[in-house]
Design a binder for these strands. Structure first.
Lengths: 253, 253
DNA sequence: TTAATAGTGTCTCTGAGACACTATGTG
DNA sequence: CACATAGTGTCTCAGAGACACTATTAA
């Protein structure tokens, strides 16, 4: 890869001087990382995968899985690589969220982080119980799409202290998926292959943070054309079993 | 600023080895830039500010104004600085859009670009006519929020060849503002202080790429509470003059 | 049989589209 | 005056909420 920018003479010395001032090699370069908000929806609510930091800074705090971007690696590939390396996941919904670049966000050095979020069904993450990845429940202290940092709580309801600006990243992720939920089939990504309409509604309510009208939700989802009846029903539920549906076209990256 | 990461001994050598592999200093670092899609809405449609590249690569092509991010400068500040330096603008709507990081997007060296978009009313940009900044009309070859690169045309309708991946950046900007238009008062940012409802509808139609129902648009806008009647009317229009409105709370960054 | 939730049918209310009509400038 | 667009009133239609009612399983 060519690292040094060719500098042909230009007729305009002012323009030349201006461009010289913006030569990339004249700048100290930041590190660029990806951080991943790996989200899932258990019966308990919206959960996120976290790793406990073993080192300073923020030793003992909880952080989103992340990694640095290779010099010949695209941002999307870096995110997919981290997802595979840290959570063993591939072919799940993965989308770039926002870039965080406050100078002091990492006290060691300048790190610009391109945040991604992944939506995964809980079954695919079950084998991580007790492993490197821990799951925290997301608690959103604001309404609607106001935005702002969120809180994360552990299995016993205790608050988990998040490292760096990861509470802001998670807040942005919640805001994004709340917005997307209205017009895209994003909820399916958080459920197993087959699911009942009630479970899908649970996911939507979990993400949005408020209850939805059952009748209207059913109608809207069935009318959307995104659901396919499997012909099977749930069982062992202590009441009339619901029809199981699948997402008509499960998209993945 | 601390550039070298402290490496305290940890009890877990495997973890230590793992983290060593991700030491930022072990990686060649990319350059990080901001690129700005400065958008305005003239009577001709949605327009974008471009600079003609005086150098290789892509010499003679048209590019979005941009600049490298300083090592102690946040992304937002870098974007605001470029906006001020290249377009003389401050206090306009400016929002981060997306980060573009394909390894080959700049043939000189690895440059990751954090794209921003700004919405500016045409009056503030009028003095740029004939200067460094040229304006091109955006033509969107896709419907709704499909997404994809857009085309840009010059004053005589000729196609302008864009540099790097800037057609993709502009496509993403159009997609974003189309989505935002439905639920945020984003259209005001593209108009002068006082404007008629018809002009606001023109802006919405320009952005969305399709005509809107006049009655419904009026009702929706007036019901939104975001408009304030100025009490004045337009004049010299050859028909009944329309009431002039202003945005109730003109937000800016 | 009872408890509990799935699923259907229908009424109402609200907002968007359609359209007819009136209002008020310029030429 | 004619013309063009601003602005109002009202009808209809589609989707969401509300609610009553029936269906089907486990215990």
């Amino acid at each position: 890869m060519v690292r040094n920018r060719p500098r042909p003479a230009t007729p305009d010395p002012a323009e030349q001087a201006f461009l010289d001032a913006y030569d990339p090699d004249a700048f100290e370069r930041p590190s660029v990382a990806v951080d991943l908000a790996i989200l899932t929806a258990s019966g308990l609510g919206l959960e996120v995968a976290l790793v406990r930091r073993a080192e300073h800074p923020h030793r003992g705090r909880w952080a989103l899985p992340g990694g640095f971007v290779g010099i010949d690696e695209s941002l999307d590939r870096a995110a997919a690589r981290v997802l595979r390396a840290k959570a063993g996941l591939r072919n799940v919904y993965l989308e770039q969220l926002y870039s965080f670049g406050a100078p002091g966000r990492d006290p060691r050095t300048r790190v610009i982080s391109v945040a991604y979020y992944a939506l995964v069904d809980p079954v695919q993450l079950a084998h991580h119980a007790g492993g490197q990845l821990q799951f925290g429940r997301i608690h959103v202290p604001w309404e609607g799409e106001t935005g702002g940092p969120v809180e994360v709580r552990g299995a016993k309801g205790e608050a988990l202290r998040l490292a760096f600006d990861h509470a802001d990243i998670l807040g942005m992720a919640v805001k994004r998926i709340r917005g997307k939920l209205d017009y895209t089939p994003i909820g399916f990504q958080l459920l197993p292959h087959a699911f009942t309409l009630r479970r899908l509604q649970d996911v939507h309510e979990t993400i949005l943070g408020h209850p939805l009208n059952k009748d209207s939700f059913r109608r809207r989802m069935l009318a959307s054309g995104q659901l396919e009846a499997t012909g099977e029903r749930e069982s062992q539920v202590g009441h009339r079993p619901a029809e199981l549906y699948r997402f008509a076209k499960r998209s993945a990256i």
